[in-house]
Every structure is written in structure tokens, then in C-alpha cells.
Amino acid sequence: MKTYNFKIKRFNPSEESSPQWQEFSVQMDPMERLLDGLIKIKDNSDGTLTFRRSCAHGICGSCAMKINGKNGLACQTLIKNMPERITIEPLAAYPVIKDLVVDMTQFFMKSEEVLPYLINAETPPERERLQSKDEQQKILESITCIMCGSCTSSCPTYWSDKEYLGPAALLKAYRFIFDSRDRAFDERLGRIIHAQGLWRCHSIYNCVEACPKEIDITGHITELKRLAVKNFFKRNK
């Protein structure tokens, strides 16, 4: 067992006017995760500490937070890889509800804008709509997104411009634009090539470094940019 210092940014907007830092000393086993530390604090030191967690296995994306200045999942952060002093903040750019819990309504609205569902009016086959291995490979990485919000919260453009779709929504757009079973190509492209879409991405790569699923988000967005340009010249020929 080793003692770790958790410095947590706490804020209750309904009762306080500004966030405050609070420190906790926690005994941690090297096999434990950061999330275990937060649970220990809530159980033993301060029951009012508020954070989200559901699956605790890196699948649901609930426990995304800023850990030592970098966005990530608390359940996926192993304590043995951490320094003794750990600073924890809520995800930036989303309004804080309480402590580490943020309001992600805007974030999910961005995904709504790019139609995050399969559009195909053709009569469905008796069984599944099949894909070839290559067709699946094309979208495999983008499918692994768990919508934790780490990427969009790390994006400098999104910090200053909340109208920007953000990396998560653009990745979602990629996932359906390159899906061989989808039939709404023009509609989808139209929803990401406006001024607050693709072109607000300046290849900063914060999202790639933040993504707990290690998705090359910027690479996917860049591919969409190239697709948009190619499509532009094809149409205007």
C-alpha cells in the first residue's frame, strides 16, 4: 500500500460561486485504478464528493475527467502509472453540474446533428445487411468510440467556439459516411462541411492524445476533409 494525494476540483454551482480545490490522502494498492481511489474517498472521507461511473471497465465512458491535465477515464488509469500527487478536474468546456459531473447535453446534441444512425430505405434482407471484411475494416476504428467526451473537451477550437461540431461528432459522421450499408452520403456530407464543421479542425491532435480508446480522430477528420474536397471538384466538373 502506498499513500497518494488526490487534489480534486470541487464545485457546487447551486451553492457556491467558484470552484475550490480539496485534497485527500488515500491508501492505494498498486493494482488499483484511479476510480478505486475516488470510490474510497466517497466511502471513507467525504460522501458528498460527486462523480459519474457505471461500468468501471472502460466501456461506458461515464468516468471521463481531466487527470493531471489530460483527459481520460478514471477506470482505465492504473494507479501504479501515476505520480504520488494526482490532480483531478471535471472535463473542460462542459458546464459543471457538481464536482466531477458535467452537463453533456451540448455534446450529445452535436452527435444528433450528424444523424448518428443508419439511413437506408432499401428493403432489408432476411438476415443482417452484410459487409465485406474490408468494408468493416474501414469503419472499425471509428466504431470503437464510447462517447465519453474526452476529445471534444480537449479541443482548443471547441473551448472558444461552442458551435463547432467537435471531434466526437465528426468521428461519428465518418463512421456513417464510410459505412457501406448507409445511403445518406449527400445529406451527411452537407451536415459537416459548413463553417462550423470540418474546417474548424486545425489538426491540433489534442483529441488523439485524449482519446482513451486510442482512436486517431484527427486522421479520420482529415480523411473527411479530403473526401469533401474531392467531392467538391467532382460535382463542379
Binding site: G69, K70, A92, P156, W159, S203, I204, Y205, N206
Partner: peptide, 13 residues
Amino acid sequence: MRYRLRAGSFAWM
């Protein structure tokens, strides 16, 4: 809005 400054974000600035 403080976040770690890395090669990519430094280059952007």
C-alpha cells in the same frame, strides 16, 4: 481553460 501544451497545440498557437 488550462490543458497540457503539446507539440500539436503549440504548433497551432
